[in-house]
Design a protein around this nucleic acid. Structure first.
Lengths: 229, 229
DNA sequence: GCCCGTTGTCACGCAAGCGTCACATTAGCG
DNA sequence: CGCTAATGTGACGCTTGCGTGACAACGGGC
């Protein structure tokens, strides 16, 4: 939930106001008064979200947004545009930016925070939500249900993600590091042995239907999901 | 016939105008300024209808419509195209891509509402004002009445919409964010925990007839309506 | 004006789940 | 057949997510 936000705004008063609110909401704030400076900061720090003022000295906000969305590795970063009320009618006409949302000034802190939250919400990791099945073991991401030969199996959130990953990448050995990356997310510091414990919990949950044998240990390498011995 | 409508329109002024009218007519409104964002919202929130602007930044409205109709489970969602006056000759093209209707800008709110009503009525299956029933729990959108095993249950407006959405999308787990989109509309800004409170209120209202057990919590994921344990 | 139903938010508390450690067990190697 | 490293396993604090009641802000009806 806490994210790194870059605020591109040339007017100090507004910039400070925004920054204060964002920090209050637990975000990490970077600020740049111009597009040039912003560009460099983006390269350095890769923010999760950019708040972009419509009017900027030099390059306008529109141009900048277009440039961002054109560039390969910045186009994934969501942009929220800040526009003054009077500018809507005239300027918005030729809009071709890839902004993800707009906020018109003046805005309340609550509104801004809410829109930020809404935009960040959508960058959620999207697992393929197709149903997966293997040797009588079935997992459905949509209903969030797991069944072994029809009998329901209940798993904690982490075990669920772990099994889902293994089922979508079967027959292949995954090191503990890889599993931490794929299942826990690569920004978390967790001991590698923690994987062992969750494998254990997963196996125990699969025991009643004998499906625990599918989860195999490859000594010195990691774990694997497979039907073959 | 309250329905969830997704408005895909990049121009904020028009988008807000449409949203205002739809809300006035009792619909739940979601809005997305780009095809990209719209895709994600559709997958999450499953709107009943999509209002699609002809011209969009990046992918054009036509392309987007074609993509929607090509995809397996979005092709059932009706699409109404919004076109500017000069583009009328493209009407044919629009209908070819699978749009269910089209409206030329500028349009009156009454015309838009009428078309929406017509399109929604045309849809035979899972029409939004069809009566829904599940395990003795029945909800009638027309009379706005809910009964559990015959006994009447009384709900506030929000709980009613929440239950209606859950009943029309059962078995499936919905995150708090998805519920906010589908039941509140993504134009209002409320805390995710608010969903919990309304779930609580819904459960309490369903308690007398034991139907509260249908509303299930999936820890770490969201809520689900289901008969199975 | 006043009242009452509804709504969004907060604070508190409990319980599930998580990560880590310590110890038991096993596999592989000479 | 013992030794060692890797893995299995149970237990234990601690965090986090969710349930729940309370409350203030609205807003519509009388």
């Amino acid at each position: 939930m806490p994210a790194t936000v870059l605020v591109v705004e040339d007017e100090p008063a507004i910039q400070e106001l925004i920054a204060f609110n964002l920090k209050q909401a637990g975000h990490i704030v970077m600020a740049a008064p111009s597009a040039e400076l912003a560009s460099r900061m983006i390269k350095d720090a890769l923010p999760d979200l950019i708040l972009l003022d419509w009017m900027l000295p030099g390059m306008s906000g529109i141009e900048f947004a277009r440039k961002l969305k054109g560039d390969g590795y910045t186009k994934a970063i969501p942009v929220i545009m800040l526009t003054a009320r009077g500018e809507e009618q005239d300027k918005v006409k030729g809009l071709e930016t890839g902004a993800d949302d707009y906020v018109t000034k003046p805005f309340s802190p609550r509104e801004l925070n809410a829109r930020i939250k809404a935009v960040l919400r959508r960058r959620a990791p999207q697992m393929t939500d197709e149903q997966v099945e293997m040797a009588g073991l079935a997992l459905d991401p949509i209903t969030h249900r797991v069944t072994g030969d029809g009998a329901s199996v209940d798993l904690g959130p982490t075990e669920f993600r772990l099994l889902h990953f293994l089922m979508t990448h079967p027959e292949r050995v995954h090191s503990r590091a890889q599993l931490l990356d794929s299942v826990w997310g690569n920004q978390v510091y967790v001991e590698e042995r923690t994987v062992d414990v969750h494998i254990r919990r997963l196996r125990r949950a699969l025991e009643p239907t004998q499906h625990d044998v599918l989860v195999q240990t490859v000594r010195g390498a990691g774990y694997r999901l497979s039907q073959r011995a």
